[in-house]
């Protein structure tokens, strides 16, 4: 059986863990939580620093939801994570110092994966910082000749994350219909 994955990425605090939690059928496995029962020595040796959730489909198929480690510096794990992935959800935190730079960084880092699949972008914390606006993000993306879906999202809202993932699916195949 194939292992289907959707990858969630973005800077620290953008809401990857919460987003996965919003649509996962199981309590997401957070690496810190998984390690908490272990001894201190064991803990530091086994931390893998990524989030994981599962969406169960009616036919028993499982969709694996992976959140990349939050800090950009650990991109050596990303290539491994994206193998076999269906697409990318990029979450950006609008209160960060330079969200455009974050966006460009992740788009560049996952450029190969995005070319093979697609990307949908969710902007979090817009209630705290309304600038840049969603229009500003689109203008920025158009400089790179990209037109992905960009939605304001609250990672805690299941509907927001669901719509974002749906946009990713329709980008991959606009002819999709529910089964």
């Amino acid at each position: 059986m194939s292992q289907y994955k959707i990858i969630f990425t973005g800077p620290v605090g953008a809401g990857k863990t919460t987003a996965i939690q919003s649509i996962s059928d199981v309590e997401p496995i957070k690496t810190d939580a998984a390690a908490s029962d272990m001894t201190k020595k064991r803990k530091s040796a086994t931390t893998v620093a990524m989030d994981y959730g599962i969406m169960k489909l009616e036919d028993g198929e499982k969709i694996h939801l992976y959140g990349t480690p939050g800090q950009e510096r650990f991109d050596f794990m990303w290539d491994i994570l994206t193998v076999g992935g269906l697409g990318l959800i990029l979450l950006l935190d609008n209160t960060r110092a330079d969200p455009f730079q974050d966006m460009q960084f992740f788009l560049d880092s996952f450029a190969g994966f995005i070319t093979e699949t697609s990307v949908a972008i969710g902007v979090t914390q817009m209630d705290l910082s309304s600038k840049p606006s969603i229009d500003d993000y689109h203008k920025q993306l158009q400089k790179s000749d990209m037109k992905p879906a960009v939605f304001a999202v609250d990672a805690r809202e299941q509907k927001d994350i669901s719509l974002l993932v749906q946009a990713l699916l329709f980008t991959l195949d606009p002819g999709l219909e529910d089964e």
């Binding site: 289907y4 036919d59 969709i63 269906l86 749906q166 991959l172 195949d173 999709l176 219909e177 529910d178």
Partner: peptide
């Protein structure tokens, strides 16, 4: 043109919309 993964994508869509 339908995607090669149309089947699984449709099932994910159904799951998301059935919530």
């Amino acid at each position: 043109k339908p995607s090669k993964s149309k089947g699984i994508l449709s099932r994910i869509l159904g799951r998301l919309r059935g919530e």
